[in-house]
Design a protein around this nucleic acid. Structure first.
Lengths: 189, 189
DNA sequence: AAACAAAACTAACGATTGTTAGTTTTATAC
DNA sequence: GTATAAAACTAACAATCGTTAGTTTTGTTT
């Protein structure tokens, strides 16, 4: 066990609670009880409830952004890019499935700057995804008669992984990757 | 315009607000402001905030349950059953996209009896879906080497339709149905 | 215009919210 | 063992929450 900072422990506990009930329904007293301390004690380690949320979400969003930028910049086929995107989602999900619940469902509770920052990242991520698919169709690497629906469908599945994966009894990452690639791309390639 | 009851107007306004911020983050004063009245006035028409949520969710859940039961009972091929399930989701989404946000994200805020009732319906729905796919694979009607992932992937896409559909500029229902069927089933059949 | 019902209002309640201030306990370093 | 820092505590705050009680306005029927 690595000795995690107290702040990180709080953020991890919050991620679990946020996943179960959503950011707004979790009180600082709920979080404190989960940590075995009193609510006021939390503030020795964090600045605010909002800071917890933004830490969870922005960190994950930047992981996706960095991963996508790397894929976009790489000189590989469209199929390989899509496979890498799938792998990226699986990797992030395995590492922090709880936090992804906040990213997916509570991003709108971010405040001013972080909200704008997040929405920009998400929009650019989707735009990159769409461009990759479109280029693949144009070059004849993949077949897809409706790009919008194909992008939406794939992204929906990848974004919902965090809900589904923990319910499977320790399916191996590599096998999951292989099977997800098959299901999501076999009808397209 | 059909003259909707005041109660239904409140539920519709609530559906929109719940979609934007989630059940817990929407106050009765928010809802009242959206209706152009004071919070206390809402209680001339509804019993509680909880009643609004359960009305939205249970009604939709029963639509899905009834639709699924009809499909299960019908004597058609597996492919046709899957096509009908896709059509069911599209129909419900077109009719009440806002309410589906609550069903997907705020069901855990239902109270005792309704929570149990909802969870039972959802579990049975998924079980029916799984059985249909499994039977189709056994009979050789569809190919799918990983049933769990195929079920999860399809259901994720259909459940997220409510987020995606309103952003498309009036795509026609029949075209959407045809294209969704292609994207979701072409790699399987 | 009188009667009635529907739907709004004002005012307030007890509970809960995130958070702050100040203090005490616990663990570490010399 | 004494000093220091980390992390817990108690107590309370102002704001906001869902909801109730009682009253007034609005609209319809006779």
């Amino acid at each position: 066990m690595k000795p995690e900072s107290r702040k990180q422990e709080i953020i991890n506990a919050a991620s679990i609670l946020f996943k179960e009930k959503g950011y707004s329904a979790v009180t600082m007293r709920d979080l404190a009880k989960a940590m075995g301390i009193k609510a006021a004690s939390l503030y020795n380690h964090i600045q605010s409830k909002q800071e917890i949320l933004s830490t969870i979400i922005i960190e994950l969003a930047e992981e996706f952004t960095n991963g996508m930028n790397q894929i976009v910049a790489s000189d590989i086929s469209t199929i390989q890019k899509l496979e890498n995107i799938i792998a990226l989602h699986i990797d992030v999900t395995l590492r922090n499935a709880d936090g992804l619940a906040s990213l997916n469902n509570d991003w709108m509770h971010l405040e001013e700057d972080n909200l704008i920052y997040f929405e920009k990242m998400r929009q650019e991520y989707e735009e990159n995804f769409r461009k990759i698919v479109k280029k693949g169709v144009d070059k004849g690497e993949i077949k897809s008669f409706n790009i919008e629906i194909m992008v939406f469908s794939t992204l929906s599945t990848l974004r919902t992984l965090y809900l589904w994966y923990p319910k499977q009894n320790n399916i191996e990452a590599n096998i999951l990757k292989r099977d997800m690639i098959s299901v999501l791309l076999k009808g397209v390639a």
